[in-house]
Amino acid sequence: MANSPQAKKRARQNEKRYAINKARRSRIRTQLRKVEEAIASGDRSAAAEALKAAQPELMRGVTKGVIHKNTAARKMSRLSGRVKALS
């Protein structure tokens, strides 16, 4: 349990940051799921649109420190390859 004033403040800041990061991660996962669903349906144009919408969300997650740069790059690479394979 936090006793000192700065430890109490830190606990408050951590809670707030946790909520923000959780929401951001959730938004990223939602975008990725939309791409997956579009790929599964076999609709290349919808998959390309979903990928285009997911890319900035992933990169925003990187700049905000929610996910690692290489993780985002790997996800983008694999998804774009799968979208490209649809024909």
Rank of each mutant, 00 (worst) to 15 (best):
G61E: 04
I39T: 07
G61R: 03
A23N: 13
D43K: 11
L86N: 00
Y18N: 08
E37A: 09
K52F: 12
K69Y: 06
R78C: 00
K64G: 10
K75H: 10
G81H: 04
L79R: 04
Q13Y: 02
L32S: 06
R78P: 00
R10L: 08
L79P: 03
N3Q: 12
V83P: 02
P5R: 08
G42E: 06
K52G: 07
R60P: 02
R74K: 13
K16G: 01
A7Q: 10
L86W: 02
K8C: 08
A48C: 00
A48M: 06
A85C: 01
A11V: 11
V83I: 01
K75E: 09
Q13C: 00
E49Y: 03
R74W: 08
A53V: 11
R17F: 09
E49Q: 14
E37D: 14
A23K: 12
K69R: 14
R12H: 13
V83N: 02
A19M: 13
A47S: 04
A23R: 14
K84R: 11
R12K: 15
R44K: 15
A47Y: 01
E37K: 09
R24Q: 12
M76Y: 08
R27I: 06
A85H: 01
A46H: 09
I28C: 07
E57H: 05
K52M: 10
R17W: 05
L79K: 05
H68R: 09
L32N: 08
R25A: 14
K16Y: 10
V66T: 12
A72H: 02
A48K: 08
K52Y: 12
G42S: 04
R29V: 05
A46F: 07
R78Y: 03
A19Q: 15
A38Y: 02
S26D: 12
N14L: 12
S26E: 13
K8F: 08
A11L: 15
S87E: 09
M76R: 10
R78V: 10
L32T: 11
S87H: 07
T71D: 02
R60S: 14
E36D: 13
A19G: 10
A54S: 10
R29L: 11
R60K: 15
E36S: 08
G61L: 07
S4E: 10
I39R: 09
Q55N: 09
A73L: 06
L58R: 04
A85L: 05
S80C: 01
V83C: 02
R25E: 10
Q6R: 11
K52R: 15
R10A: 11
S77F: 00
K34S: 13
A7M: 05
K22V: 08
Y18T: 09
K69L: 08
E37G: 02
K84N: 10
A11C: 05
S80Q: 08
T71C: 00
E36T: 05
S80Y: 03
E37Y: 00
V62D: 04
L58H: 06
E57R: 09
A73E: 08
A40G: 06
R74F: 06
R33G: 06
E15M: 10
N3E: 11
R82Y: 02
M1P: 14
N21E: 12
R29P: 00
P5M: 09
T63L: 05
M1D: 13
S4T: 15
E36I: 00
V35I: 02
A38H: 05
R33M: 12
R17S: 12
K84M: 03
K22S: 11
